[in-house]
């Protein structure tokens, strides 16, 4: 018996190392409790929609320096931002790869000539939520099909690398042990379908980078600085892993 248990531990790794089969993928929305699902299903009880409302107001308001509002260049958010979040992170015309947050910050500095709002600020999360809503229900596009294969590989290497004092990789929890209980918490598969999210644990809106930072400190690894290219690589790999799943942004999560 003891021998068999030991073999089972060894065998678990090759059996699962390929990750999650497409038909077995479940978003955080699907695996969270019915109360949180109900909160997200009704736009009037989803707190992230307050962020959307604030973001839409910001979209249409010009900065004090006379430069255009977002709408001054992009027009109607419903038309021009449709499907944009589903294809982010994305390579820009100048070759740089940016997440949606970085893209909005670039607009703020280059076209609005204002100091970009910092990552995790309510204003930036609100704008991101307003943009992300325009991809809700759409399939997440595979970054590898948009010339980001190298970033996908770098992100996957990071995803599979053991990290921190606890010596755990992302894959060991989210590929190999999803659905199991870590203390009182059910381990999700870790698909970024709903960002920015209103997380009940935070009692606030937050980004994917904030969520990833939580996992890093959870395994007692030092997180990368905000906006670091490693975070973007990891996001790109996670979007590749979730490609074809429907966006449910802006989501509620426990």
């Amino acid at each position: 018996m003891r021998f068999f248990i030991f073999l089972a531990l060894i065998a678990a790794v090759p059996a699962l190392a390929q990750g999650i089969a497409p038909q077995d993928r479940r978003s955080g929305f699907e695996t969270m409790g019915p109360e949180a699902q109900a909160m997200q299903r009704d736009d009037f009880s989803n707190p992230a929609m307050l962020g959307v409302a604030a973001g839409e107001a910001a979209w249409n308001s010009a900065p004090a320096n006379g430069k255009p509002a977002c709408s001054g260049c992009h027009g109607d958010i419903n038309a021009t931002m449709r499907g944009v979040d589903a294809r982010y992170p994305a390579r820009q015309a100048n070759g740089a790869v940016m997440d949606l947050t970085g893209r909005i910050q670039t607009c703020q500095s280059q076209h609005q000539a204002i100091t970009p709002e910092p990552r995790e600020s309510a204003g930036l999360l609100a704008l991101q939520a307003a943009v992300a809503l325009r991809s809700r229900g759409m399939q997440i596009e595979a970054p590898a099909s948009r010339g980001l294969s190298e970033a996908v590989s770098r992100g996957e290497a990071l995803y599979r690398q053991r990290l921190g004092q606890l010596n755990l990789s992302c894959a060991q929890c989210h590929d190999d042990h999803w659905g199991r209980s870590l203390g009182g918490t059910r381990i999700p598969q870790g698909h970024p379908t709903g960002y920015p999210i209103f997380r009940l644990e935070w009692q606030a809106m937050g980004s994917l980078q904030r969520r990833l930072r939580n996992c890093f400190t959870g395994v007692r690894a030092e997180p990368f600085p905000a906006g670091a290219s490693e975070w973007i690589d990891l996001e790109i790999y996670l979007r590749q892993r979730a490609a074809g799943m429907a966006s449910d942004a802006p989501g509620v999560r426990p």
Partner: peptide
């Protein structure tokens, strides 16, 4: 996991 374990065993 158990199916994999049996196969491996």
């Amino acid at each position: 996991l158990s199916a994999g374990a049996i196969g491996f065993a």
